[in-house]
Simulated scan of single mutants.
Amino acid sequence: MSFDRYGSDVLGGTPAPTHHRARPVSRPQPAERGLVVEEVQTGWVGAVVRVEKSGGMHVVVLEDRAGRTRTFPLGPGFWVDGAPVELTPPVTSRAPAAPTRTASGSRAVVGQRARVARGSRIWVEGKHDAELVEKVWGDDLRVEGVVVEPLHGVDDLAAALADFGPTPQRRVGVLVDHLVPGSKERRIADEALRRSPAGTVLVLGHPYVDVWQAVKPARIGLERWPVIERGTEWKRGILRELGWPAQTAEDVGRAWQRILGTVRTYADLEPSLLGRVEELIDFVTAP
């Protein structure tokens, strides 16, 4: 029996192979400006001009050698150097510009490490005062190596200064709330200054009952801070006027964080506080 190795129909073509070569997989390719690509459906070849958003989708604009441009949806369907790619948005590696000014308005010193703390100190009445000073002047203070410490009240200011032992090389600047003529705070400050070596202590203050009032009222939607009746705890009275929770110390703390969060730069504070803090910084950093 003879065997026809070509089959019965030599013109019938080559039998279909039993397997197919795997289709190439597109690799992600950022659509960087200047990249030359081919759009496979139209055969358009051009360099990437830009990627933009149009009609709710990202598109890529390609420019051919003649300067003509066409726009295609970003994604698969392109070739680069003979290989399929899926165009993706370009990688943006530009770092945000460093701020040129600190929150206090001073020129920012980029890349400088915090200075080792000086012996001199700035004292403020309480935690909220310290947090506000840090929020606005923190960058400046770190550059100068100045530490801010809360006193938790000024009633014992003279004793605290005696314990610290200020000298011309270890000066103390003190920021006091409600430092106005005839006030208890004024009498305490004067007594502390009398007991300290001349030129080693500077006590300055603002006219407000509490440092909260040094934040411009517009920052929390007020025309002016409410007036609280004498005998009422000031902070809780303020919170009741604002309609905020005022029952516990935690309520007061949360309210302060809410107020502090509205402070962005020195422009959000009253000038009567700004000048005093700047004077204290100059005093403790003077050679």
Rank of each mutant, 00 (worst) to 15 (best):
V80P: 06
A83I: 04
P287E: 03
A98E: 15
Q41Y: 06
G253E: 14
R236W: 13
R258D: 13
P24N: 06
P17A: 07
V37P: 01
V60M: 05
V201G: 03
F283V: 01
Q213P: 01
R50H: 03
P271F: 09
P90C: 11
W212E: 15
V91A: 07
S196Y: 00
V146R: 10
Y266D: 13
D129E: 09
P226K: 04
L87Q: 00
L179F: 01
A130H: 08
V91S: 04
K135W: 09
P17F: 00
Y6S: 13
G231D: 11
A66E: 15
A114P: 08
P76T: 08
S120D: 03
H58A: 12
P84I: 06
Y6I: 11
G126K: 05
D4T: 13
P166L: 08
K53C: 14
D251Q: 03
V59Y: 05
R219I: 03
R258W: 06
P287D: 01
P168K: 05
A31W: 01
I228G: 02
T248R: 13
Y208H: 13
I228Q: 02
S272H: 13
G275T: 13
R186S: 08
T42N: 11
R23S: 10
G111T: 00
S54W: 12
K216Q: 11
S104G: 03
T248K: 11
E191Y: 07
V25S: 12
A214G: 07
E279P: 01
E241G: 10
R240S: 13
P197F: 01
